[in-house]
Amino acid sequence: MNVLNFIQSFFSDGSHWHGYDGIPQRVWEHLQYTAGALAIAAAVGLPIGLVTGHTGRGGNALAFVSAGARALPTFGLLVLMFVWLGLGIVPVMIPLVVLAVPPILITTYEAIRTLDPSPVDAARGMGMPEAKVLFQVEVPAALPLILSGLRSAAIQIVSTATIAAYVSLGGVGRYILDGLYQRNYEKVVGGAALTAILALLVLVLFWAIARVAVSPGVRRRRTV
């Protein structure tokens, strides 16, 4: 049996489509973990990245902290949090957030810092208040890069949120873990396929957001 056969039989098995262990339920859980972790990571990473990028200060400290965060093994962190906090959503969220903050933070910081300085200079020179300089001049111009930081964070979260299954939570990681225990490789492959599909969905979602949110003047595709 090859992988494609596994996938086909996994998805065509009617019993996989309903119940608390059904695909819709597991996908829904997975999306909730992802959205939650991404929202928290963005709430931490975006403001810090924007402010440090705008002022140009704190870049070294940022690089240091993110390198540290990236060095932490996500699974190790999960085990640590589990030992420390017990079962629940919090020990899962913490490693996911730690995983997602560095790409958001660093990309946002770099996106703002490396902008062409002349529009910013012009904006200040015409008497634009600092907050407007940031949100009306810098952010719109840096948006494609900022979104790419969020996108890579989201992809990492989607694929890593499978670890939730290790602490008895749901998500598509359940299929992988249970399948391994039960030696049911159809389940393992099905779970992995679901993870990949979710990652693709994230890509499509961010592509759509960029289409809507990024000004055509910044997308810079010369059509003439």
Partner: peptide
């Protein structure tokens, strides 16, 4: 900021806002 708004400021590379149309750049 009130002082700066009372003085037009033009720089070497124009420093236009790439994400705004020409009309909206001028209307800033």
């Amino acid at each position: 900021n009130a002082l700066r708004q009372s003085m037009g400021y033009v720089i070497q590379n124009a420093g236009l806002f790439q994400h705004r149309t020409i009309l909206d750049n001028i209307a800033t």
